[in-house]
Design a protein around this nucleic acid. Sequence first.
RNA 1: GGGAGUAUAGCUCAGCUGGUUCAGAGCGCCUGCCUUACAAGCAGGAGGUCACUGGUUCGAUCCCUGUUACUCCCACCA
Length: 895
Amino acid sequence: MELASKYDPRAIEEKWYQFWLDKKLFHSEPDNRVPYTVVIPPPNVTGVLHMGHMLNNTIQDVLVRRARMQGKNACWVPGTDHASIATEAKVVKMLAERGIDKRSLSRDEFLKYAWEWKEQYGGIILKQLRKLGASCDWDRTAFTMDDVRYESVMRVFVDLYNKELIYRGVRMVNWDPQALTAVSDEEVVYKESHGKLFYLRYFVEGEDRYIVVATTRPETIMGDTAVCVHPEDERYSWLKGKRVVVPGVGRVVPIIMDEYVDREFGTGALKITPAHDINDYNLGMKYNLESIDIFNDNGTLNEHGGKYAGMDRFACRKQIVKDLDEAGLIEKIEDYTNKVGHSERTDAVIEPKLSAQWFLKMEGLAKRALEVVEDDTIRFHPAKFKNTYRHWLENIKDWCISRQLWWGHRIPAWYLEVNGRVETVVALNEEEARKLAAEKYGYTGALRQDDDVLDTWFSSWLWPISLFDGIRNPDNPEIKYYYPTADLITAPDIIFFWVARMIMAGEEYRKDVPFHNVYFTGIVRDKLGRKMSKQLGNSPDPIELIEKYGADGVRMGMLLTAPAGNDLPFDESICEQGRNFSNKLWNALRLVSGWQVETSTPKDSKSRSLEDSKSNNEVAVQWMEQRMAQVLEEIERDFDQYRLSEALMATYKLAWDDFCSWYLEMVKPAYGTPIDRETYEATLSIFSRLMLMLHPFMPFVTEEIWHALQTMGKDDEKAAFINANYSIMNQHMPTSVYYDQRLLDEFDTAREVIAGVRNIRNTRNLSPKEALEVSYIASDERFRIDRFEGIIRKLGNVSAVKVITEKPAGALSFMIGTTECFVPMSQNVNREEELKKLQEDLKYAEGFLNSVLKKLSNEKFVNGAPAAVIEKERNKQRDAETKIAALKAQIAALG
RNA sequence: GGGAGUAUAGCUCAGCUGGUUCAGAGCGCCUGCCUUACAAGCAGGAGGUCACUGGUUCGAUCCCUGUUACUCCCACCA
């Protein structure tokens, strides 16, 4: 078999993904195994894959594939989110481009377009995930608005309404004038903005005196219904009981006094606009003030705006300032910086607005959701997010769940009029509602359904349950088997939107947590530390990256720099490392596949060298097995703590350094000679297990190499059978076993000897082809290299390893611990240089000894420190003294 | 305004319960090599007052005080 010297991921990745799909290896059904469930954080149905998705889904895939190989029944459920506001905005825009105005459409017509759009563009992102290698159970693909999920949402709404946890009320909400809908508190982003603070004159009714009020929003004076000052503010005590004229408007409003006012801010006087500010609204309630709503839903002035009616709020601000200024009603204007709320989805400036909305009571739900995180029934990784979570839940307010949109789950509330009163019935569907209306009110006329839809998160919060139909059929075998899920992998910015609410829903509808662990990924940033975004154009296209470096390469690149909860400064070049690693593995395969295996065991003298190499190889195999067991232990620990990047790094080093650089070099037969069968088999086995360990991180290249290894040396028929019927995916992950630390230590010493020889060669410009001799004085029992002598000879190109008792003349030396090693030189050594080097070493050793002696002569240390620590210091002292003596002797020999 | 977090090599980060895993890893950098698996490679090497300050301790990268810088979250000051 002839293999290309460069690994080309493209064809290989496609081949294996199709193979996995054909074999239905991602599919899961409940059985006797332990379940391992992960639900995907559903991406927006019309979204495209970005780097954040890449990171998030790579992590999920690593965990899922590992669990599967550990013998668990892994089920990773994919799906998409209907994303009410975002999708509706996209559809509106698409229609506008086609010259269609949303307002000219009926609800049904609009929804038809929306569904068409969804069918056309929806799910692109799921296709892209396949390129990444995601091992989702695609048969289970769900959508938050498909039949099962839709009905689940309806049932939950009805249930919570009947439990009196859902209510409808007129409240001040965050209004998005662009999307024309209310949004929740969490969907408002406050941004620093440079504006002005306007000082307006409010004349006292019938007098020449006036009071100056500072405001950032002069356009709202049309809605002013009072001016408020602090009751103890002596500057304004004269105003008590008076009334003032709203400038430019002419309306006469009362002066009220309330401690809410901050006397230090502005002039200490505050204008009250109950319809357009939450605080003013509260004061309005308290003092029974009139509330005048001056805005239309789209942010233009309504009929209360007088001559400004129809103008946009920001245009109106300019105009009104101009007009007031001309009328001499502006005292001054100052620059001012404050935080202005923007809609997360549309970026429009949020307008506080009074409107009728549906709310969900949070108090009881929040309490339970807090408990399960506090007592570690659910663990956060990293744990610091517990603080954030607690703080939010302890200060939570009722959740505004209605949205004035069409795309979404329509609120199942119907209105009817009986005896001049509007009554509400809430039911699963219109038919049920009709029945209910008849029962409760004896009403049989037409019903009018609420126009609003539910907040998107009102469906996502049920996701871990509704995916297994656990709302509609709470006792079905699937929900019982797969719920609670194991791990949730998500970004910290949706901890409130989604994570907290899923926990609430889990407690409410399953009396159990929805997952046991939450792994918070970091935010993917560019080299300059900026968040990746479409606007900045600093986000690479993940699909292009995959084409360039292979999915394995990109996965590895992402994982290497992404410890849990840390932001990840992404640089494309990191993918190169992943690609190079794939290539390295590929070339290891090329090496092994080219080996000739010993066919008979000849007894003649020619086989001496083969026998020699055999015993070397035995040690090599032993060592590699021990090393592998050690790393496996490390990796298991890393996974337990969700330290994925560390687990990958450990595996990477095991494969590259230990396996390729050391092990393969140890057993590699000389050119033209065969390798013994035992070593060959052992190598294939070790290599295969390495592939298993790497498979969760790099699924494609490992599957390819694993197959090559399994079929190596097999006849065509057998190979074809293996290729058609086996996959690395469901092989059993190796587990750590006992390993011999002594052997590992001995190898480390041997490795230092080899490095010492190579270093001498390197610094003295000696040819690697010239064999050197190594000798050492055996004085330290910790220095044991007997077992690795043959390997030292092979890898260091050493002709002999000798134990001696006297320092040889004319030799170069290096120290390993307290043992001196010598390399005799045929040519003259550079005395000056050697002397300089030895003196530097001596100086360092003496300094080190000094610090140790200082410690040991400190009575407090000797009395206070534990015996073991003191013993260690004494050992250090002895070693340092030995070393110093040796160095001095060498210097003397040279001089 | 409140709260949380971070600061260790040029970069990104480990360093778990104070003492031989104690100053580490990967990448980058420097030097020499196209050594028949791999230049997407091989061998060797250099780099750090562990942000600053004071304290606790026989002993501090690690615990405590304060300072500085950055990051994030929360909040209705017009």
